[in-house]
Amino acid sequence: MDLFFIIIISVISLGAVFAIIRFIKGPTASDRVMALDTLSVMLIAVLVILGFLMKRYIYIDVSLVYAVLGFIGVITIARYLEGGI
């Protein structure tokens, strides 16, 4: 079971490394914002899995806050690119 979760976390980290490479390369601002969005969704999943491994119920609250508030920054930057605000 421990080996299973090590493999899970490693594969998700590899996906996160690809998103980081896009964050470094990305030519426009939109690419970087998209990499930030994907990283935050990956982080929510990783935080829930870590909370399961640490056996504490309180740790789930952090990812709940991420799921509620994480999209406000992306929407603000998108409205700026559109010319609004």
Binding site: R56, Y57, I58, Y59
Partner: peptide, 9 residues
């Protein structure tokens, strides 16, 4: 160590 929060766990 674990977090300094008291809970049933």
């Amino acid at each position: 160590g674990t977090a300094p929060i008291f809970s049933p766990a």
